[in-house]
């Protein structure tokens, strides 16, 4: 029996096929899927903020794009994923409200996406697909068996990346 493993906000999880990973209702947060296509091992982190060095209280590593990705790679190699095999798919980083007077709050989704890409680039992990930005929430599911990322949004057709 395959399991669907849930990942909450500022949280992460890993799985081996036939299990799959999901995170529900991604808003301005970013869902980062790392995947080893050879071993069919996947990891999913649901990060909330771009940069751990800008925040004093940074105990929870999965809260940030930078430390979240590092920790996720660590978790995945622990269960047998090959560091050199890893590729990425990312989704989220929406702007849920159109704040007119607060630029910093308005851009948090974009900044999360930028920070995620920067970090993945610096680690030379290729981003195979992304569905980011815009102004709507996303529920994502990742299946290591197929390597496909399924994305659902309210009132939209399901996307498969």
């Amino acid at each position: 029996m395959s399991k669907m493993i849930k990942v909450g906000m500022a949280d992460a999880n890993v799985c081996i096929t036939p299990d799959a990973l999901t995170t529900l209702g991604l808003g301005s947060c970013v869902g980062i899927v790392l995947y080893d296509p050879v071993k069919k091992i996947a990891g999913l982190a649901h990060i909330m903020l771009p940069d751990s060095t800008k925040i004093i209280n940074n105990a929870n590593k999965y809260k940030f794009a930078d430390t979240g990705i590092d920790k996720l790679i660590e978790d995945m190699t622990k269960i047998g994923a090959g560091r050199a095999n890893l590729v990425a798919k990312i989704a989220g980083g929406a702007q849920m409200f159109s704040f007119s007077n607060n630029l910093e709050m308005m851009r948090i989704g974009d900044r999360n996406v930028e920070a995620t890409k920067e970090k993945l680039n610096s680690l030379r992990i290729k981003i195979l697909a992304e569905d980011t930005g815009e102004n709507y929430g996303r529920t994502i599911e990742f299946y290591p068996e197929t390597g496909k990322l399924h994305i659902r949004s309210v009132g939209k057709e399901q996307k498969i990346l």
Binding site: A10, M96, V154
Partner: peptide, 27 residues
Amino acid sequence: SSIPYMAIDMAGAILSVPAIEFGKIGD
């Protein structure tokens, strides 16, 4: 209070906005 900002979407996505503000100061 500010003017109202409205969104119609998944509850989790909407709640991520105040959650992120809290995320800056704690866990």
